[in-house]
Amino acid sequence: MEMDNVYEIVKDTSELQKQNHKKCRGSRCLVSITVGLGLICVLLLISVILQHIRILSFGDKQGLFFMSTELKNWSDSRQYCRDRGADLVIINTEEKQRFISSFATESVWIGLSDTEDEGIMKWVDNSPLKQGFWDESEPNDFGGNEDCVVLNPGRPIMNNWNDLSCSYTIHFICEK
């Protein structure tokens, strides 16, 4: 009697497998698999994008700051930001200096240079530098090759800017 029950269970299982196999045949099964894989790809893409973009609040405003994963010179960094509707970050207050320094983990280009008029530091929006957060004895190359400004997070927060040659390839921060 027990063998008959086992036989019936095996027979029922075998029938279910045949029915399931018939349900997922040909183009219908292929479409389901393709849609599933497509959804997985979209979720992975969203995950990668979110790892590279930080939406952070700054004061009473919302700001979008992008910390690059690529190394670029100052001009290419700026172009990268501009191609995405942003520009290199402008740090024109103590509050913003503290904020940007708090999440920069490596040296990064900021939107300050004297590439247009030697010795006259200007932001990427052409506004003049009113307050700087220079490292000790910086800037030290007015009139030379160090025309672009980098923020060094390893230095004291209120004194971590350095002028460098714009050709160095480092990370950068875009602001929108």
Rank of each mutant, 00 (worst) to 15 (best):
G36M: 02
N160L: 10
K11R: 11
T93H: 01
N20T: 03
L56D: 14
W161A: 10
L112F: 13
L39M: 15
D60S: 10
C41Q: 13
V150H: 03
S101F: 11
G85Y: 09
T93E: 02
G63W: 02
S101G: 07
W123M: 04
S77F: 05
N162M: 09
K61M: 05
D117T: 12
E146D: 13
Q131T: 13
E175S: 15
W134Y: 01
R82G: 00
L129G: 09
S75W: 10
L50Q: 13
S68V: 05
S167V: 11
V42H: 09
I33A: 09
I100Y: 04
F133D: 00
R82Y: 00
N5F: 09
F99D: 01
P128G: 10
I40Q: 05
S14N: 13
G38Q: 13
Q97C: 07
P139K: 01
W109V: 02
V89T: 07
T115S: 12
T34A: 11
S107F: 05
K61C: 02
I100L: 04
E95H: 00
R155S: 08
N20E: 04
Y168Q: 09
I33L: 08
K23Q: 08
F142W: 07
S113R: 04
E146M: 05
H21W: 11
N92H: 10
I100H: 06
I91E: 02
V48W: 15
R78H: 13
N162T: 10
E116G: 08
E95G: 00
D147E: 13
G85P: 09
G143F: 01
C174T: 06
G111I: 01
S113I: 05
S32H: 03
T105M: 12
N159F: 03
L43I: 12
I157F: 04
I157N: 03
I90D: 05
V124N: 10
R25L: 10
T105I: 14
S137I: 05
I40Y: 08
R82K: 12
C29Y: 13
R155M: 11
I46A: 15
Q62H: 11
F133K: 04
V6M: 05
G119Y: 07
L151R: 14
S32Y: 03
V149T: 12
R78P: 00
L50W: 09
T34N: 07
I9W: 06
Y7H: 06
A86K: 08
G59V: 10
